[in-house]
Structures are given as C-alpha cells and as structure tokens.
Amino acid sequence: MSEHMATDQTGSALLAIDDVERIFGGERKLFGGRTPAVHAVQGLSLDVRRGETLGVVGESGCGKSTLARLVVGLDLPTSGSITFNGEDLAELARKDRNALARKVQYVFQDPVASLNPRKTIRTILEAPLRHLTDMNADARERRLNELLQAVNLAPEFLERYPHEFSGGQAQRIGIARALAAGPELIVLDEPVSALDVSVQAQVLNLLDKLKEEFGLTYIFISHDLSVVESVSDRVAVMYFGRMAELGPSRGIFRAPLHPYTDLLMRSAPAPGRHDLMSEDASAELPDPYDPPPGCAFAARCPNRTDKCVETRPAPDEATGSAPGHIAACHHPLTRA
C-alpha cells in the first residue's frame, strides 16, 4: 500500500507515515489463546509537508487520537514506519525521547486536564525549557516572557495555578508549552472542541498567527468539519482506523469522493440550516473485534454493492480532479 503514496511524495515531506498499524490487545493469555485485538489504526499511509496544516477528521473511535499519539511518540506503531525528516521516529523515541520532543509537540484536547493541578504555570512552562533545551536561567526567563506574549497572556499569570484559568486561557498555556522548545511540528488533538464558540475563534486565530510567526507545521485533529475546513490546507478523513479520503481541503469540501465524507458534511449543523441529513438508526460502526472483510463503511453506504462488502478498496481506489485527492471507495461520488 505504500508505493502509490511514495509516487507523489515531494521532497518537502516533513513527516511520512508509511503503512502504519497499531493493534491494542492481542497479547498471549496465561492459559493459552490471545486476548481480543482491536486495530485502532490500520494500513495508514500519509505524509505531512513542511509548513502545511493537515486536518484529520473522523468520528470517535476512528483512530485519529491514536494517530496523534503515534506521531508524537507517546505510543509506538505495531508495524509500519513513521519517519520525521528522514529519521525513523520509533527509533528516535527509543533512543532519545527528548530529541523527538524537541521536534514534535502536542496540544491536548482537555486544556485543564493537561496541566498538573499542583504546579504553577511557571513550573509547567519551564519544564520543556529545562529538560529539552540548554538555556540558562536568564534565557529561560526571557523565553517564558516571549511565550506568554506570543499566546497573549499577561506575565503575572506565571505564578498562578491551572484551576484559576478558564478553558481558553488554559489552552493558550498548553499551546505555549508546546511552543516552548521550538518544535517544527505540532499535533493539535481537538484543541478547540472543549471550548465555547467565542473562545474557539480566539484560539484558532492565535494558532494561525503562531504558525506564520514560527514557521510551524500543524496536524490538526478534530471531529468538527467546519473548523477543519477553516484551518487546513489538506484534509484526511478517517473511518474505522483507515483513511477514507485524503486531499486538498478545498477539493474535498467542494467535491467529496467518499460517501462517508459526504455524510459528515451533510450532518453538520450550521446556523440557518434546517435540512439535516440523517441516516437510519441502525447505522452503526462495525464491531472492532470482528472487522468486515470489505469496506468498513459499506453497511451505512447508500451506494453499496457486493464488491464493497467483499473487497476492501485501496486507499487510492478513486482519484479526484485536484492533484493528490484520493479516496478509498469503489463507487466514488462524482459531481459536476
């Protein structure tokens, strides 16, 4: 599955995910047999180009958070490889965790839970500077002030504890912490979904500004299509641990190839929209312990044929008009 991805890999790929698989469970039991295994991520190939924002969309359980943890090295793939700037990430994580943490950082979904309740903001923000860089105390102090300024927080916040902050402020601190050691890639795992819409917009604008200022690359994970559309250059739609569709943001949202993308788009409520598309109640995710042999979406798909049930489509089974727009579908939607 990896070859076809390699063809359109340009020299500017910062992160390359090649046929990655992550299985949970499946260990041998004490008295024979194996514990049931769940494939959280399967056959995933994808690359992230330097300076872009790659949006990853999908519903809960589609493996997008597992993907995020794999990219930052909090978890290691069961098979397949992830290379960052030509270096094998799993190797790097094993050899020198901190070298990886200097390059790739993570922003958590729940901003308050990601801050230790018993530490001041200063201690929290200083940790990456202390452990990942060799700055002296003066340089750290300067960097702390720079960071706070970058995320629009007043310097007196440094001495406070996390519970004194609102969700939006806590998320700014989380972003500042990710920025601290000067990473090249930041994985944003649902960074705004715990926030109110008004605050959400503030944080999204901030992320935009920081990306330009520091020349960052983002992987932006979210279940909210409209948010992803507004921030992403390219979008990957995931379903049941696999890639359903990948392509430039505009191409995907103008003319989705995969019926699942289409379903997602038409389910999203928007102000002034009354006609929500809704499927039958029986539409459920397949059993993760017993994945279907064919397309995982077949059971919910309006265009399903026998072929869909029997054979699994390759990730680039269908291609769209825009370059690099691919979908894992036997019967892609075609639109004028």
Partner: peptide
C-alpha cells in the same frame, strides 16, 4: 503525557 513530552 504532557510532562513526558516536556522531556521529563
């Protein structure tokens, strides 16, 4: 996890 990513 965050502390781990901070290099601790």
């Amino acid at each position: 996890d965050a502390a781990r990513l901070s290099g601790k």
